[in-house]
Design a protein around this nucleic acid. Structure first.
Lengths: 343, 343
DNA sequence: ACACAAAATGATTGCGCTGTCATCAGCGCG
DNA sequence: CGCGCTGATGACAGCGCAATCATTTTGTGT
């Protein structure tokens, strides 16, 4: 207990390094955190000692003393969803090589557990937070507003963002899909959607508006399920759609899984795509373009969202207030391929 | 500086709660960590005080004092790969509701950066570690052997596992695929593989053996690339294969992306699957069974691997040495569907 | 050579919690 | 009625680092 740490079988500490290098502990701390304010002589000695002892800083002690960590919290509603898998990749690309690391919280599309996770993350004094929606509970929102760290909300555009945001106009993107289908000459489009979280609801709303504007809204052609999205679900939903409205001539799918599933179901039934049935997907993951026929889709910048979110966060962490462009709209792109065609 | 923490604008501490509840700080600590050794009276008072003050423990202080965290490190070679996405889901399912949380490290199929990540994670005093291979550098392996926490190696079966392991026999699984193709009567099978990490290499080796045993090994039909796997890559590799060996009558793909890509390329070229070309996939992600034709595949227990790995880890953390079954073989399953058929 | 600013370094203290013992109350039992 | 025992509680120190302020060294201009 009273032994000097040197005698402990444990890892070396700052003090051990300091002794080895013949400097004070704080100098060691400084050569690690801001080498430029330490003389070259001292720096060399310290670095040598660190190498010799195999020293690595204890993040817990650092966090306690400095009252902040190198953790960036990332809240996503799902791990299953390909969309967030892509966002995640972008995020990890962005943190790679920095001193930060990411911790993922999955709130499973439950605003309540999202609130819990926010509370939980915040209690860890994170360096920054990325959250995947604007749909927090009032308490959750308040926590974010008062968070002692930068916060980036992703996926959608700014209205109501707490601090910073990166995304695109999801509603406009869906409208673009509906418009595209209408412009191709399809007159009786359906809409398939799984997992009806608030964002999916809003997208459906946007579809309704745009369809109505083109005088082709028919509630019977809107098929949704609260269950998770999957290729199998896409097949199932198309099956339902065709049972309820056999004369449907196009279908907009709320994501790629569903679109692939719908396409496969159409092929099984010998329904010609795009002639008898147009299919337009949402998000455009890599496989969509390789299907036969290749899927038309609204491409969304998922990976880029992750990258930019991290970039903003890091900039703001290094120099609070330095980020001037606090709300980024990355846009979307309608990519017409073979699964829709002018008729 | 000399102010009592009460005056600080900051969050309440253990001491604040203790004062509020009229007990000592350590009692508060105990009611949080092991409520059963605290009298009911004290527990109630403390819980009340915690609620009143909105206290949350500071994990950094806890980690420093107790010399251990609630972090579980998860090292994966890729975030893009669907296989690890599934493992990840299993892992997150497993930690949900526990006091632990997962931190992911992506070593991008580089044993060297894996070593760095191991070092890095270990310096955080994790509660446990999950690593996705047996292919560490010698130094990396040594670190794992001496790790002061339980370690689970996943994906493969035990030979050479450092501590615990969960996986299945990858080589036997590939052999099963080759055998299946042979049993269907295909005589000139090819093999497509992307991202030739050590595991992929070994699988290719197993294919070679089994193919040779069935007298149908032809090096010209083995097409690999160091690049990442994707559906597009699957199309590309099949294209190469057919250019080099047009009489190929079946193809075993090292994962589902490639298989889907190969299938799509075959469809584009009007090659009848399974009649002219049999396709057998590896892993069997959800979409594989929904393709037209449905893909035959060796199904691997990815999600279950994640779940079991966490389960073992948590058991071992709670009671070191309590886990008796330290090497779990979850097996695989050959699922014959439409993309292969007896001829 | 000297004064003075700037740069480099150091001593001290405390972050919030838990490990380790010591203490104390309550209880059954001879 | 006091003994020892168990279960509950507390006092104290220290985990390893960084903030703060004090001190020393170095460099600069005249």
């Amino acid at each position: 207990m009273a032994r000097k740490s040197k005698t402990q079988s444990d890892r070396p500490t700052l003090v051990d390094v300091a002794r080895e290098a013949g400097v004070s502990a704080i100098t060691v701390s400084r050569t690690i955190r801001s080498p430029d304010i330490v003389s070259e002589r001292a720096r060399n000695k310290v670095e040598e000692a660190i190498r010799k002892l195999g020293y690595t800083p204890d993040p817990a002690a650092s966090a306690l003393a400095s009252r902040s960590t190198s953790t960036i919290g990332l809240l996503v509603p799902s791990l299953t969803n390909n969309v967030f898998a892509d966002v995640l990749r972008g995020v990890y690309e962005g943190v790679e090589g920095t001193r930060f690391f990411v911790q993922i919280g999955n709130y499973r599309y439950s605003a309540l557990s999202e609130e819990g996770l926010i509370r939980n993350f915040l209690s860890q004094r994170p360096a920054g937070l990325i959250v995947s929606s604007m749909d927090q509970t009032p308490a959750g929102r308040k926590l974010l507003e008062e968070a002692p760290c930068p916060v980036v909300q992703i996926m959608e555009t700014s209205p109501g963002a707490v601090d910073m945001s990166v995304g695109f106009d999801q509603l406009e993107a869906v409208r673009a899909a509906a418009r595209h289908v209408a412009e191709c000459g399809y007159r009786r489009p359906g809409f398939l959607s799984a997992r009806m979280d608030p964002r999916a609801q809003r997208r459906l709303g946007a579809f309704r508006e745009e369809a109505a504007a083109n005088d082709m809204l028919d509630e019977a052609r809107i098929i949704t399920t609260p269950q998770p999205s999957s290729v199998g679900m896409g097949r199932h939903l198309l099956e339902q759609l065709l049972a309820r409205a056999p004369d449907t001539d196009a279908v907009i799918c709320n994501n790629d899984d569903l679109a692939v599933g719908a396409l496969m179901e159409a092929i099984r039934r010998n329904i010609a795509v795009p002639e008898q049935l147009g299919i337009c997907s949402y998000n455009d993951i890599e496989m969509a373009r390789h299907m036969v026929p290749a899927l038309s889709a609204v491409a969304t910048p998922r990976r880029e969202i992750g990258r930019r979110a991290i970039a903003m966060l890091l900039a703001e962490i290094e120099a609070p207030g330095s980020v001037t462009e606090r709300h980024i709209d990355l846009g979307y792109e309608l990519v017409a391929r073979e699964s829709t065609a002018p008729r």
